[in-house]
Simulated scan of single mutants.
Amino acid sequence: MTKEQINSLLLNGKFPEETGKRELMETHISWVILCDRFVYKIKKPVHYSFVDFSTLALRLYYCNREIELNKRLTQNVYIEVLPVNKWRNKIIIGGNKGAIIDYAVKMYRLDTKKRMDKLLIQHVVTEPDIKKLAEKIAFFHNKTTIIYQKNLLNIREKFNDLEGEKEYLSEQLGSSFSTIIGRAVEFSNAFLNKNKALIAKRLRDGFYRDCHGDLHSRNIFLLPDPVPFDCIEFNDDFRKIDVLNEVAFLCMDLDAFDRKDLSALFLEYYNHFFPAMKTAGRRELFIYYKSYRANIRAKVNALRAKSATTDEERTRSLTAVKKYLYLMESYMKELGKA
């Protein structure tokens, strides 16, 4: 679909049920439409280095994968995949009238006020919330598929991919941020070379699992039973990772909200239920993974800034880039002192 067709769907398109609300949320790879009771997620026809939604067949495949994978951590949230049709200049979700132009994942709408990132902003996330979440993620990691074969050092390429944004970020933010990226890449390469044996042992010992892959506060609802949703379906390699890499994402996110206390608490309880970090070397690896996750968030926001359609959206994304680059740098400094 195109942005124009999405706007048409929002304005006068037809949904499977009557709805008064049609609110659009947009990411760099998806359009998400919030209705009264349901949510419809449509994948953008994009092709980046890490995701390929460029054909209708690929988007259908990944819609089905999204439901299959997310049901591991959710109950009664993901419902079905529906065709998006164009009929008589009208966009219709569901049914069989007209030609199929795309597909949508249909989900039940959860209470947005209970989304973890919003609760963090309000300073109402509690220690019991964190403990419940840590226990749920630990038990999920315990039972999910163990991965024994993987190109372990391709994380180097993923980390270094941020260098592709240096020119743009230097133009937008100044040369100091290009310097931060250059130093971080150099440090990352040295760290990975130094810790090849440890990383290989983590794989042999069964700490690589088929995880969620995108575990941060925007993808978690803090209901009586925490609901982590929106796992990575579009790239298996991003999801089949060291469990420390997974929890490092959430802990980095909590650090970014200036809640290092909650970050430490989550890690403590997670490690109690799934002892994944017992030595100083593994703690250093965890900190490295936090720097990697800050790196990825910087890159995602750089892509958002590039594709922004308004100055406000661009400024917001570039502000986030700065925050994550500074955070990445702080983890590197922490490792440098270790």
Rank of each mutant, 00 (worst) to 15 (best):
K333R: 15
D52S: 03
E233L: 05
R259C: 12
Q5W: 01
L223I: 12
M116K: 02
I42T: 05
E165Y: 10
D311H: 13
D242P: 00
D230W: 11
K44E: 02
K299S: 08
E167C: 04
L335S: 06
E233N: 08
H216G: 09
L120C: 04
H123Y: 04
I101G: 00
W87M: 00
F38G: 00
F257E: 15
N295P: 02
R156W: 05
L162S: 03
Q172R: 14
L265C: 03
K260M: 08
E246P: 07
K118T: 07
V105P: 03
D253F: 03
F38Q: 05
A190N: 05
A276R: 12
R316I: 00
A200R: 10
S49G: 06
I92Y: 14
G95Y: 13
V46P: 13
K106A: 11
K194F: 09
R65M: 03
Y326F: 12
Y62E: 04
F257T: 11
T179Q: 14
I232Q: 13
V84K: 00
V32K: 10
D36Y: 00
L327I: 02
K166C: 01
L254R: 08
I296T: 05
Y270G: 09
D255G: 14
K118H: 14
G13M: 04
A256K: 09
L223H: 15
E329M: 00
F177S: 03
L58E: 09
N271R: 01
E163F: 07
L169D: 02
T315E: 13
N76Q: 04
G20E: 12
L152V: 09
R115M: 14
E171D: 08
L265E: 12
L173Q: 13
S188E: 15
E163V: 02
S188K: 15
D161L: 04
M1S: 11
D253M: 03
T55Q: 14
P128N: 05
L73R: 08
K118A: 10
P228G: 11
N12I: 01
L318S: 01
G174E: 05
D161G: 11
R183T: 09
F286D: 12
I91A: 00
N193C: 10
F229S: 10
K158C: 01
Q122H: 04
F53G: 07
K106G: 10
Y331F: 03
D255V: 06
R115L: 15
K143C: 11
K131E: 13
Y269L: 07
L192F: 05
L262V: 09
K106C: 10
N271D: 00
T144N: 11
Y103E: 01
E268K: 14
A134S: 09
E312P: 04
Y148W: 03
A264N: 13
V243C: 15
H28E: 04
A308R: 12
I199Q: 02
S217P: 14
D258G: 03
R314Q: 08
A197Y: 13
L69I: 07
A308N: 12
K41V: 04
T279S: 14
T309P: 01
G164I: 08
C231G: 09
N193T: 10
K106F: 05
G94F: 02
